[in-house]
Design a protein around this nucleic acid. Structure first.
Lengths: 206, 206
DNA sequence: CAATTGAGCGTACAACTGTACTCTTAACTA
DNA sequence: TAGTTAAGAGTACAGTTGTACGCTCAATTG
């Protein structure tokens, strides 16, 4: 198996990926990136793009996957912090907000393609979000003895609230962002306590 | 003031709007609609478009506004149904789901432009969603004696959950949609009961 | 009725797009 | 070392886009 050649190829592949990520912004979504623009930014001829991806879509899906990996790593880090003690809700929210603060463009990619034009994209993003729901579901089952269906419903609600506040936080001032975060934490508390309360009532046959 | 001429103009204006709405679908978002496509569909010359809108963006904002009006009318209808009695949560959810069932494309427009490329769009959509939050906030204050801040936080959470489930419901089968709706209702109950519970605790000085 | 207005059309153009095809040349293989 | 492979460049083309400009001609106005 080759070393030098494959290595060079991998490098330009990476430069394509970085070029694409670098062009994403509040005013430029992936779907209005053109193959030529990306190639230009990556320093290759437009036609050379095809040596690495068949499509812009194929490149996009790669970005989504990479983003998912990064996010999951981050949440693992968050869980470690929780084990060392601290409020589950606050630490999770802090972690998430930290991520979108530092990677606004890749988070925008997720947001946009979640309801975007390509079903392959939509599916990919849905898959990433489902990872979150599933992990949280397991956490709730293990830590708080929830039954699966209840746990999933609860997890889904929590993830929805967090993800959405992330979306709104993108454009806000530091001040408004703080307020939003406070409200988010309250909403998460509401839903957690609500679920607990309903479970108690059910157990008491009430 | 003219009658005939202005009327004709209004008619082709409407045909532009309908053309645009007609072209929106799961696979075609407003931002990849071209002026020429819309003009073609509306049966006018590309350049005639400018007699009615300066921009595609101006057309888009019009669509968002129209969508907002429709939605608010619908929610008023829902409130009337509630006054004649019934579960607040269930009726609201039914109403909302009915809307996106019957107007999936215009709802997709809202979803997409919510985190889209144009800040004018984002603002417009945010404004529409805020209408919902505000109306619900007032409702909670009047009907359940919430204090304003708590009411707003609660309303925001509820609206977020509903709006988001709407987004997910778009692509689901009838069956999955029912399940989603069930979970949504549970999540709304969680959050409402959680808020009530926390308020009680606070009042008991607990 | 004569003059004005303005919605809509047609032409034209420069900019940009994706991609088919051919060529180069450095890295690999045997 | 001679032959093969494949990444990347260059050219070319047909298609689409927004929009500037000038024209037409029916409705409106005075």
């Amino acid at each position: 198996m080759s070393t030098n050649r494959a290595l060079q190829k991998e490098q330009t592949r990476q430069s394509i990926i970085e070029a694409a990520l670098g062009q994403l912004s509040a005013d430029k979504s992936f779907s209005n990136l053109s193959l030529r623009e990306v190639a230009r930014e990556a320093g290759i001829a437009p036609t050379s793009f095809y040596r690495h991806f068949n499509d812009m879509e194929e490149l996009g899906l790669t970005l989504v996957d990479e983003c998912g990996v990064t996010l999951r790593q981050l949440m693992r880090k968050a869980r470690r912090r929780i084990e060392k003690k601290g409020s589950v809700i606050k630490i999770s929210v802090d972690t998430f907000m930290e991520f979108i603060q530092q990677n606004p463009n890749i988070f925008r990619l997720l947001l946009r393609e979640r309801s975007g034009t390509s079903s392959a994209f939509r599916d990919a993003v849905a898959r990433e979000i489902n990872h979150f729901k599933d992990e949280l579901t397991h956490y709730l089952i293990e830590e708080s003895n929830y039954e699966h269906e209840q746990a999933y419903t609860l997890a889904e609600g929590l993830v929805t609230l967090v993800f959405n506040s992330g979306a709104e936080a993108l454009d806000l001032s530091r001040n408004k962002k703080m307020q939003l975060k406070q409200r988010l934490i309250k909403q998460l508390q509401f839903i957690v306590i609500g679920a607990l309360t309903m479970r108690k009532r059910q157990n008491n046959g009430n």
